[in-house]
Amino acid sequence: MKWGVLVFPGSNDDQDALWALSSVHRQEAIPLWHKDPDLRGVDAVVVPGGFSYGDYLRCGAMARFSPVMQSVRAFAAAGGIVLGMCNGFQILCEAGLLPGALVRNRSLTFVCKRVWLRVENDRTALTRCCREGERLQIPIKHGEGCYFADESTLRDLEARGQVLFRYVDAAGEATPEANPNGALRSIAGVMNASGNVFGMMPHPEHAVEAIVGGEDGRKLFQSLIEELEERAARGGGSRRRTTGRAT
């Protein structure tokens, strides 16, 4: 399948996403420059980690105004798969494509470490290769990853199965100690109501090779690949392709 990885000024994990998709998962993956609204006919969009525009105003607040994001909005509205990781999650929240917001870590410091995630819903395009309750070890690295939303939004997310992952301890329990940033209800990742836009603070693209940090992240990319292949087989892919100017 063909993947597009957005590149904003200040994107840092764009190369890691491209590497994970192309070198590890053998997908066609291309960078999409922020000034160009053309999505080049990709089947899925990745919004990578980093510090877009330096994160000087508010994380993700500037990136949502870029030309490419206008196309991503249309792509998502037409059912296209969009995955935001870390700064990408922040951008998707700022853009209104995902509910909630990411605020300063409870510790007030940046934190980089491997954490345990528990899969909360395995009936999604991102988690279909996982089992519900399964634990994945994936790194986080962020200063503003504390997931925040009002109580009614949180209730709706839970009720509709939109909570994808929670931070847990090695035993699989969502304890306060296992929550690395103070996220409400230990939420590490969510999806939109239609189930095609995904956001998570952890970095699955940094967990795709045993030699550099483990392979648990592969299940998530594999899930999306299977989903895209299934859609293509159903003939649903072409409809979304029309939303970007095909080259």
Partner: peptide
């Protein structure tokens, strides 16, 4: 060292807290 991103660009085989860092 947890306040430092030790992973970006995916070279880090052995990160902080060891005798030497190892990069692929």
């Amino acid at each position: 060292y947890e306040q430092y991103d030790s992973l970006v660009r995916g070279h880090t085989v052995i990160g902080p807290g060891s005798d030497a860092a190892v990069l692929r």
